[in-house]
Each structure stands twice: as C-alpha cells, then as structure tokens.
Amino acid sequence: MTHAPRPDRGAPAPLPLPVSKLILFDLDGVLVDTLPVMRSAWQAVCAQHGIDIPFRSYAKHLGRPFSDIMATLGVRQIEEVASTYDAVSTRDAHLARPFPGIEAALHTITAGGQRIGVVTSKPLARAVPLLERLRCPFSVVRAPGRERGKPAPDTLLAALVETGTDPADATYVGDMAVDQEAARRGGLRYVHAGWGYGEPTAPEPLTAHEPAQLFGLLRDSLAPEEAA
C-alpha cells in the first residue's frame, strides 16, 4: 500500500473543499455587495421613523431576517419600518454590485459539474433581480417563508428538499456567524467567504479569501478520474 507524500511541516497543507453535489450561497456579502443599498435604506428608516440606531448596530445582525433584527434592536413598528426599508432598497438597488470575480467563479463551478443555489434572508422580490445580474443557472433560490430564518437551518433544509440533496452532499458558503451556525445545525459543510461582511466563529472554518479560490478548492478535492 502506497502513501501520499507527507506535507512540509514548515507550512500547513491547504485544506480542500470536500466534493459537494450542491453548493449553496448566501447573497448579501457573498455574491453581491449590497452594503451601500442597506446603508441608504437604514438611513431612510431612521429619518422617517425617528429611530436613533446607527447603521453599524444594524449591520452586526446581517444574515438574519429583517423582522428578527428589528426585534433584537427593540424596534416596535416593524411593519412600517419594513415597508420603508423595502421601498428604499428597491429604489436604490442599482447601488449593489456583484463582487469582482464571483460570476466567473460560479460559472466555473457549474462547468465542473456542481449545482449551485442561493439561500438568503432577503425577500425573494428583492433577491431575484440581483441574482439575474449574475446570469448563472441557479438550481434553487430560497428565502424564509413559513420557515424560520437563520441561524435556524430551515431555509437551507428546504433548499435541500427542493433539489433532492442530502445534507452530507451540500456545502453552504456564507460570510456571517449566523450562516456558519445554520450550516452546522443543518448538517451541511460550511465555507466562509473572506471577502464578505462578517467574521467566522469557532471552530475556524475553511475560508476562501477571494471568489476565484472556490473553484481551486473544489478542483483539488476531485478524485483523479473526476478531474480528468
């Protein structure tokens, strides 16, 4: 029996992303830079509803459904605030930009045989137009409906049910601690998007520092007959 060469002890070997049949992505902070849109919408909320909460306090909770963030921040008029936030977010959606290299990375991943999808806390009415800019073949796009939002794993599991995928065959790429927790609770592998808005929690996950690195991790994990 032959053994693979041992890595140089002077530098840890890179950890490859395990092969997955379905790669799910968060939207904000992973696929699209929507921070300018969110800042504009939150400033409008504060001005119109007399709320004195800085954007940085709101941004700490990104990844969770908007109503959950409002409850955490102690905002009571949630429906009125949500209406303002949605209207301004739609008006200023042009400020959002796909992260450099993300579209090419997605196309490369799908060309390698993996399916891709999106699980986001953003309402579908605002998520879908942003995703259309990427011109990618998403197999599934899910946002909380009756399901609980992140960090609960419900929307991730709903995406798996819709695509007929086992949790062991799926990976979630996110940028916030709630994404990491949702993946853990759902039994999915997790990869942290180092170009996003948040920081991971312990245990330290596999991290892609730029979109182009995602395919490299996938490619390096393929068996020789699959990579040929």
Rank of each mutant, 00 (worst) to 15 (best):
T2D: 13
T2R: 11
H3Q: 04
P5V: 00
P5K: 10
R6P: 03
R9Q: 08
P12A: 03
L15F: 09
L17E: 09
I23S: 05
D26K: 09
D28A: 04
G29L: 14
L31D: 09
V32M: 13
R39Q: 13
Q48G: 00
H49Q: 14
D52C: 04
D52F: 05
P54F: 00
P54G: 14
P54V: 09
R56C: 06
S57D: 12
H61D: 11
H61A: 10
L62E: 14
G63P: 08
P65F: 06
M70W: 01
A71R: 14
G74F: 09
V75L: 13
E79S: 15
E80V: 07
E80W: 07
T84L: 06
R91F: 12
D92G: 04
D92Y: 02
A93H: 02
L95Q: 03
P98H: 04
P100G: 00
E103K: 12
E103I: 08
E103N: 11
A111L: 01
R115Q: 05
V118Q: 03
V119M: 08
S121Y: 08
S121E: 14
L124S: 12
L124H: 00
A125D: 09
A125C: 01
R126L: 10
V128K: 12
L130Y: 05
L131R: 13
P137W: 09
S139W: 00
R148K: 07
R148N: 11
D154T: 04
A159H: 00
A159P: 00
L160W: 01
V161M: 03
E162Q: 02
T163D: 03
P167I: 04
D169W: 07
D169R: 00
G174A: 06
Q180E: 09
A182L: 13
A183G: 15
R184G: 05
L188D: 11
L188Y: 01
V191M: 15
H192T: 11
G194Y: 05
Y197A: 08
P200G: 14
A208R: 04
F215C: 11
F215E: 05
G216D: 15
R219N: 15
D220M: 10
A223K: 12
E225H: 10
